[in-house]
Nucleic acid binder design. Structure first.
Length: 296
DNA sequence: AGCAAAACCTGGCGGC
DNA sequence: TGCCGCCAGGTTTTGC
């Protein structure tokens, strides 16, 4: 499920427990997820202190002292949960209720914080599309991350940059925005949401909003702004759920969102004065939700 | 080259 | 209740 905002929320949730903590035990309970675990997975991490938790697109990076960087991807169904020996709550972090199926607890990290508190961080992934790999130096040059496009966070992605990315492309906007080599971190939900906010059809040929001209420039500017805002809003929502609520399923990052179009087939479009209805179509084998009345 | 489908897995849900 | 087909928020590989 996780797209960039969910991964960022997971990162923030794990940070207070993992950063500065020492890994006293690391266990992979099966040989592989999507890919085999790295050679000496446990041995290379055990005993190390975690210096930082990072994120690039939908990848989580766990940096350890003098060691490899652990690159984690949650795939479609991966999640982390945190357990403490006494079940006490960790400030700023979800307290787990009851895990669904321990059968899919694939990786267990036992950590001791600088203050001596022990906790256990567990990676659960029923579908096993997730994976964990080592980067020996900076993760940016790892094959998995090297080709990624611009982050939709911050202000880097503006109309001019987006126009240059879309220029000459014949594919529909939906496909282009899902392409991690162009913009890194958008997934099926936030692409639908961003296109709705921008008033652009997911079927629209990408190159047509990148051509020179006033109208195209305005559209690429609007789309860039919509992408940035939808991501920023979702991260803010994750952050607030992290602060204020206990997760219903005890996992990090699966907070409740309210989407304008995603999974709202048949409902009235919420654009003021639009009067249209949300449709579900299939593009590249995946669901797209949009309003044909206000998205052109 | 570029784009669309298939493949990788399991679980949940609606329909019968 | 049970079985069956379909669907799922990601990425890589295959095929056109």
């Amino acid at each position: 499920m996780p797209e960039l905002p969910e991964v960022e929320t997971v990162r923030r949730g794990l940070q207070p427990v993992l950063e500065g903590a020492r890994l006293v035990g690391v266990e992979a309970r099966r040989p592989d997820l999507r890919f085999p675990f790295p050679e000496n997975f446990s041995a290379r991490l055990t005993g190390k202190t975690i210096t930082a938790l990072g994120r690039r697109a939908k990848y989580l990076t766990i940096h350890v002292e003098g060691g490899p960087v652990l690159i984690c991807h949650l795939g479609m169904s991966g999640s982390f949960r945190i357990e403490t020996p006494d079940g006490s709550e960790i400030p700023g972090v979800f307290h787990h209720e009851r895990s669904k199926s321990a059968a899919h607890d694939h990786v267990v990290f036992d950590v001791v914080s600088a203050g001596g508190a022990r906790s256990r961080v567990i990676f659960n992934d029923p579908r096993r599309f997730g994976f964990m790999l080592f980067a020996e130096g900076t993760p940016d040059t790892h094959p998995m991350l090297a080709g990624l496009g611009v982050e939709p966070t911050g202000n880097t992605l503006d109309g001019v940059l987006l126009a240059s990315l879309l220029e000459g492309r014949r594919s529909p906007l939906k496909a282009a925005l899902l392409d991690q080599r162009l913009i890194a971190g958008l997934g099926n939900i936030y692409v639908s949401e961003a296109l709705w906010r921008a008033g652009l059809s997911p079927l629209r040929e990408s190159g047509t909003i990148a051509k020179a001209g006033k109208k195209a420039a305005a559209q690429s500017e609007r789309l860039a702004g919509a992408i940035r805002s939808v991501i920023a809003d979702a991260i803010a929502a994750g952050g607030s759920s992290l602060r204020d609520y206990v997760q219903t399923d005890g996992s990090l990052g699966y907070f409740q969102h309210s989407f304008a179009v995603y999974d709202r087939e048949g409902e009235p479009c919420s654009t003021p004065g639009c009067g249209g209805h949300i449709e579900r179509i299939v593009q590249s084998g995946r669901s797209t939700f949009y309003c044909r009345t206000c998205q052109r």
